[in-house]
Design a protein around this nucleic acid. Structure first.
Lengths: 159, 159
DNA sequence: ATAATACCGTTCGAAACCGAAATATTTTTA
DNA sequence: TAAAAATATTTCGGTTTCGAACGGTATTAT
C-alpha cells in the first residue's frame, strides 16, 4: 500500500505521508514527538494515531538527514523540534506532488466505494469524477465549483 | 494506520480491506490469486498492487477459515477460488460497517487536504453531502441520481 | 498527602506486507 | 521456430509499523 500515501518526486525520491506531515506541522510551529502524535490523533478524530515506535525513530531519522533539529530541550526530556532550511526545501518540493497523493487516494477510494457504498459502477465512476474535478477545478474557480456542488446537493434532495 | 483500512464489527472482529475485497470480488465471480492482483491493480490504476507474498498466504488463510474453497484447478497449477456460505455471511456482516470506513476516510482526507493545501472545507463538506445523498437516494431512484451526478460532472468540466 | 493521569522519550519483538527468487506452463511476439 | 511475455504459485528474508514494556517527571484528582 505504499504508493497510495507516498509522494514520489522526479528524482525518484519517495516520501511517506507521515514524513511529509511532520515537516509540514513543524514548519508551522516547532513541537515535540508527543505533540505530533496528539495533533494527528485529534485532527483525524482517532482514526490515525501513529505509534511512538514510529514517530520517535522517524524524528531521529529526520534529524540525521538534517531536515529538523532540536530547538530546545525542556522538562521531562522534552525535545522540541524545528525545521531546517533543508527541511523546508524538501517539504516544498514534496508538496509540488501533493495532487499525486490526492489522486492516488481518490483512486483507492473508488475501489472501496465499490465494496461499501454503491452497487452501481456508473455511480461509482461519476462520484470519482466529481471528486477529481472538484479538486483540480477549485484551484481555478473555487466559487463556481461550490456553486455547482451546491446545486447538485439540492437536486439530490429533491428526489 | 490500521484503523483507516479496517472494519471492526460489534464483537471486536477486525477485517482488513484486502480481506474484504477478496471476499467481495470472489463473491461476484470465482477467480485466482493472479486475477485478484491484476484486478486491484487495474481498478486503482496501479496505486495499489497487493504483493504475491500478501495475496497467496491470505487466500490460504481464507481457505483454512472456510471463507473460500478451491472450485477447480486448471492449467499451470491455476487455483480458482469461490466463496462459501460462511464467507458470504462474513462479507455481509462486514459490509454493514462499511460506513465506518467511509467516516474514517473523510477524517483522514481532511488531514491530507491540509498537507496538499486543498483548504476548502466547504467543498469537502459538499462532497460529503453528495455522497450521503447519493447512497440513500440511489436505493430509491437510481436513474435520477445518475442523471444528476452526470450533469454535475458536465458542469464541472465546463469550468 | 497520595494516587491517578498526563506529559515525555526509548526500544524491541511481533505482525503485516513487500519483493525478489524460484519454479512451471502457456501464449504471444519477433 | 525461437524468444519473450504472460499466466500461475510458492516461499522467505527484509522492511515497516505497531504496541507493549520500560523509565521518568509534572499535573490533576481524590
Amino acid at each position: 500500500m505504499s504508493n497510495i500515501f507516498n509522494i514520489e518526486t522526479k528524482n525518484g525520491k519517495q516520501y511517506g505521508i507521515l514524513f511529509i506531515y511532520i515537516l509540514h506541522s513543524i514548519n508551522k510551529l516547532p513541537k515535540t514527538g508527543y505533540d505530533l502524535i496528539t495533533e494527528i490523533k485529534e485532527k483525524t478524530e482517532g482514526t490515525w494515531v501513529p505509534s511512538k515506535g514510529t514517530i520517535y525513530p522517524l524524528l531521529k531519522h529526520l534529524q540525521e538527514e538534517n531536515f529538523i533539529i532540536i530547538k530546545q530541550i525542556g522538562e521531562r526530556s522534552k525535545q522540541i523540534f524545528m525545521i531546517t532550511d533543508e527541511g523546508k526545501k524538501t517539504l516544498s518540493n514534496a508538496k509540488k506532488y501533493g495532487c499525486q497523493m490526492e489522486e492516488n487516494f481518490l483512486k483507492f477510494r473508488r475501489l472501496v466505494s465499490e465494496i461499501v457504498e454503491f452497487k452501481n459502477e456508473e455511480i461509482i465512476e461519476l462520484m470519482y469524477n466529481i471528486r477529481m474535478l472538484s479538486v483540480s477545478k477549485s484551484k481555478i474557480k473555487d466559487d463556481e465549483v461550490r456553486y455547482i456542488l451546491d446545486n447538485c446537493v439540492n437536486d439530490l434532495k429533491k428526489i
